[in-house]
Nucleic acid binder design. Structure first.
Length: 213
DNA sequence: ATAGGGATTCTC
DNA sequence: AGAATCCCTATT
């Protein structure tokens, strides 16, 4: 059962936290299904956020960020890595959440094969935003995909036991990665969220904390 | 039409 | 610490 549109209609920083524990499902007709648990996210807000692609206003690339929530925003960085984002709603309010890391769920073997590491069961197969798309087989052709309906790429609510485990472990926050160019205060905003001590985190959080602290 | 740069990852 | 690599945005 896919998460409905209403789930995404909230401030992007709230959405970034709400997505932790959710399941990102990749259904490829040829390769089959794999899915992962979202364990790390970052929020990118509207034009005021100097780290966000929306800082240039509505451009061809960022236009998806200005649309309704619950759609995928996939783009290329550094000429080689594809990054997956979840657009926040409502329509007209730009914002997107970068999926920085996912943990194992379904189709680990398929994900390992896509990573070029057949047979690996490392929990860190998708520990990093570029690795997430590589492991899940997410390409630019999926930009704009409606994540609220079962299809090639969609999102599901956290399984019961996952939600329970996350509640026990807690959420850590920190500054977003690789956005020094944005300057103060945007580079320091604690808009990176992670499942505390999860093995699939992309890299250590410099300081521990709780949302809102 | 062209130049500057990046929400990364891997290797030296 | 540095390269790989190309699309996007801004500027001329």
């Amino acid at each position: 059962m896919a998460l409905g549109r209403a789930f995404f209609d909230r401030p992007v920083v709230d959405l970034a936290q709400a997505l932790l524990g959710c399941v990102v499902v990749r259904d490829d007709p040829a390769a089959g299904r794999c899915s992962g648990l979202i364990v790390e996210t970052e929020a990118y807000d509207g034009p005021d956020d100097r780290a966000s692609h929306a800082r240039f206003g509505r451009t061809p690339r960022s236009s998806i960020m200005f649309g309704p929530g619950g759609r995928a925003y996939v783009y290329l960085v550094y000429g080689m890595h594809r990054l997956l984002n979840v657009v926040a709603g409502p329509d007209g309010a730009p914002g997107a959440v970068l999926v920085r890391a996912v943990g194992h769920h379904e189709g680990v073997a398929l994900m390992a094969a896509r990573r070029g590491q057949p047979g690996s069961t490392s929990p860190r197969l998708a520990a990093g935003p570029g690795l997430v798309t590589q492991a899940l087989g997410v390409g630019l052709e999926l930009n704009g995909t409606d994540l609220t309906r079962q299809g090639p790429l969609w999102l599901a609510a956290p399984p019961r036991e996952v939600a329970a485990a996350l509640a026990v472990d807690g959420i850590v926050t920190g500054p977003r990665v690789g956005v020094a160019y944005a300057g103060s205060p945007w580079a320091e905003r604690p808009w990176r969220f992670g499942w505390r001590d999860h093995p699939a985190l992309s890299r250590p959080f410099p300081r521990s904390g709780v949302p809102g602290a």
